[in-house]
Design a protein around this nucleic acid. Structure first.
Length: 119
RNA sequence: CAGAGUAAUCGGAUAAUCGCGCAGAAAUGUGAGGAAAGUCCGUGCAUUCAAGGACAGGUUGCCGGAGAAACUCCGGACGGCGUGAGCCGGUGGAUAGUGCCACAGAAAUGAAUACGUUAACCUACGGUUUAGCGUUUACUGCCGAUGGAUUUCAUAUCACAGGCGAUGGUGCAACGGUGAGUUAAGAGCAUCACCAGCAAUAACGAGAGUUAUUGGCUAGGUAAACCCCAAUCGAAUGCAAGAUUAAAUUGAAGGCUAUAAAGGCUGUCCGCCAACUUCAGACAAAUCGCUAGAGUUUGCGAGAAAUCGCAAUCCCAGACAGAUGAUUAUCUAAAACAGAACACGGCUUACGGGUUACUCUGCUUU
RNA sequence: GCGGGUGUCGUCAAGUGGUUAAGACCUCGGAUUGUGGUUCCGAUAUACAUGGGUUCGAAUCCCAUCAUCCGCC
């Protein structure tokens, strides 16, 4: 789990991010990107979503969320986020195809997704 | 040794690095389950309505006990299954009443508008229908099977007499079953024996019930069809309940009245979308409820058990975009089902690989 | 978290305990036509979500499970 200041919390923030309609998809994981930062000192906030429709069992949904979160945390720690730092918010959405992936595959997917983000 | 049955139990471990929730000033401590699941029952708790009575309606349904209660648990009775240890059971009433029982069959519940006689009607007769009268008698539906006559015989036909419900046929089911005797042949035979069922009496038991004797006598199934009987139940909504403090509101947003005309979907209306218009661009509440409880562990006592009592001991998740993860190594091995969201008691379902105790059956050996 | 509904041929669907179950669309064949469509005729095979129970007999009655859909911020 990330610490509090990196988390995306409010419902309005989620809706605002979805509204921009700037998204990328790769192997069962989608990223929604919000607007660019006004103040460069603000942190980039992240949300992770796996809906109940992707799988019925809570254990498998939690597993995917944790794997995505862990791989993002490692990238944050090593400061390999790239262009994503310029934006206010990110939302990762897991789909049915990603449920069977292992940790290493997920981390590769998320890294390449972040590289796709433009200036 | 093999195969079964019952009960109980474990629910990955250790180390290293990085990381998260809660508590705390810090050090540090602590952090998912046996089913947390399904939501099938039952409670607490909260709000609103009603608070009296009756009816309606719902729920439950062998007996006794336990329990806050329960489609709950324990023990027993009865019935069924299994060679057995054991397992399973929604198990009141069909003699309160109503309904239903397809097809087949003479007949499906009055198994029969009883039986006999007389009169009327029709007829050669048997017979059939209607009405009246009498008798209270053990009962016994339909077809065939028996004897006699006619005919050369068989088949067939005819009438009379008596017998019959055993056997055969239908069906899930035919007023209980089997055997003996009786009889021309039978039978439910005013007969005998045994079994089943009913009633009464007696004994045993707390009760469900069991056993014995006697008696006459035979009652189709279905209540998981309506229903009857007995017991029992305030109703609704669920922590997203609700309370307090602070504040002023909405955010994949809102508005679009009437008359005539006017964009797209359509033949029209409605509706939706677009257009137009009004704003807003990541500031957009917090605390309590919330976990000290029908609690955990251990010991002693009561009881056949469920369970209860007493004493000591422990405090053991509490999030709110929502905490348990990742990597590496070792343990035979990338180990099942699966993730708390107010709490608790049950039930049901899912589950890899084991462990322990007792019991049964078969085989072998002594 | 709490509550409610639905499962029947490939699709849509009827069926209030009594023949392994009506119909429409689809598919296939034939007729009509110069050809195709329309129309007409005929045929195929296939279905009661799963597992138990009650009953002589369940798509139907009862119980459990599974799948799926919806509502309440």
């Amino acid at each position: 789990m990330l610490s509090q200041k990196f988390r995306l919390k409010k419902n309005s923030s989620f809706t605002a991010t979805y509204r921009v309609k700037n998204s990328f998809y790769l192997n069962g994981v989608a990223v929604f990107v919000g607007l660019k930062k006004k103040n460069p000192n603000d942190t980039t906030k992240v949300g992770f979503v796996v809906s109940k429709k992707t799988h019925k069992r809570a254990v498998k949904r939690n597993r995917l969320k944790r794997l995505m979160r862990e791989s993002y945390r490692i990238l944050l720690k090593n400061k390999e986020l790239g262009n994503a730092e310029k934006y206010m918010s990110l939302i990762f959405v897991g789909h049915e195809k990603a449920l069977c992936h292992k940790y290493k595959e997920i981390s590769v997917i998320i890294k390449s997704l972040l590289e796709k983000i433009n200036d």
